[in-house]
Amino acid sequence: MKSIRQTIKDKGANVLNVYFTAGHPTLESTPDIISLLAKCGADLIELGMPYSDPLADGPTIQKSSETALRNGQTTRHLFEQVRSARKQCSIPVILMGYYNQMLQYGIPEFLQEAHAAGIQGLIIPDMPMDVYERDYKKLFENNEIEISFLITPMTSEERIHQADRLSSAFVYIVSQSSITGKQGGISEKQIEYFQKIKNMKLASPSLIGFGIHDKESRSIANEYSQGAIVGSAFIRALDGKGELAEKVSNFMEQL
């Protein structure tokens, strides 16, 4: 199966990474949503591991996490869901979760199981870069699990270079200093920040996320990086009425 890095390289531009919370709206829907997204043109899937205390997430992802946990979603389910999706499609899957969830599973076991289930990458927003480099980098590489680190408008240049060096999948450009799910236009200040990152000519590809929710914001993300990450907007679409397949294809069309 193709790596995340290779998938982005091959496409070169306009990459679309779609996020949703595993186990939302139902446990059974997760493998179907993965393959529907793949069929409708997503390049990468970012699967959220629902967490009781998602510090960096806004109300939409918080609510979807609560639903998923109420549905009984666990880390073990998640591996099963990806395994099941793998029977239908080969789109790269990235897990996004909080450090504590992986810590309690056991990091070596988690990486092994993730790889065995057909997962390509991880995003762990609250795992410090130096902890990764010191304790886990080798382990990730041995299990062929790629990682992405986040940068924000407040990240220093030194740390941007560190994130660039350590991200084996892509650098995750957080579009603004905020939690997930903010709607509204992209400001001049944000454009300046995107331009600054673009001018740095990072060695890793980068994708822009947080607040990307329509054609306009997506095209800006495409202009300043290799593509966009869409999350809360898709979850809101899933929460709407109608057949799952229809909701996914309608959402992808208006993006």
Partner: peptide, 8 residues
């Protein structure tokens, strides 16, 4: 153990 958004 904080997300990058809080680092600065």
């Amino acid at each position: 153990f904080i997300p990058e958004m809080l680092y600065a």
